[in-house]
Design a protein around this nucleic acid. Structure first.
Lengths: 121, 121
DNA sequence: GGTATACTTCAAGTACATTTGAAATATTGA
DNA sequence: TCAATATTTCAAATGTACTTGAAGTATACC
């Protein structure tokens, strides 16, 4: 992942409204959520405001959208989020790996993952 | 990790100068680097400018400083960086774990880590 | 004490991000 | 075609972040 892309992504998730949108859409999974539903779940923020933030996130590559009738459905772009986590770890892991300590514990909580992938050597 | 703390940390690393400082200090390890040395390694940015960014990073908890004679030595705060990675993964992993995909591959590159920690069941 | 070095703090200017409400666009169904 | 719904786009106002250079603080050494 390029530095510039990472910078844009970090800027995208450094805003409360946008971080909450991301969390919401990750939980929603591939189905995604209507723009209006997102606005309502975000303490009924003004639609134009939510639209602004959705655009930022989409331009950062972290979410994507599709039209369904009158609605526009947004969903998380999982590979991009995965790249971002990897960037943060790799950028900081070069040399030594203290940065990964707490992430390792989280893998144990992951369900639906082949455990083989977690075994090193 | 609290949402607010994460937001401040993401804001901190969403700036090119600061992201480069972080990378530099992670590579430097516990020894850290003098403020002046950092400035020189950053294409000789103005000292007041580097000082401004070091302060942002320190306030975000990502780096710490100690005085040594005339110099001030900055070093990465590894637990905070580790927390941030974990926040990003956990925040997005709740429910399902697609976000962790690429991070797992990186663990294999980590040296000096007991492989047992990577084995799940 | 005085001077040099290493940094930080401050104030001013500039640039960028966010919110707001009104107007515009797209789609549906009567 | 018209009205209703769902959403975006736009322009203006406000707020926040960044850079710059000059002045200030801390330490060291003569």
């Amino acid at each position: 992942m390029e530095e510039n892309q990472a910078l844009v992504a970090f800027a995208a998730i450094s805003n409360q409204t946008r971080l909450r949108i991301i969390r919401l859409l990750v939980l929603a999974g591939a189905d995604g959520r209507q723009a209006g539903v997102i606005a309502r779940e975000l303490d009924a923020a003004a639609p134009s405001r939510v639209s602004f933030h959705l655009r930022q996130l989409e331009q950062a590559g972290l979410i994507e959208s599709r039209r369904e009738g009158r609605s526009i459905i947004y969903s998380a772009t999982f590979p991009a989020l995965s790249d971002l986590v990897a960037f943060l770890m790799h950028d900081c892991c070069e040399g030594h790996c203290k940065v990964c300590d707490k992430a390792i514990a989280l893998f144990a909580q992951c369900t639906g993952r082949p455990t083989k992938a977690l075994v090193v050597s």
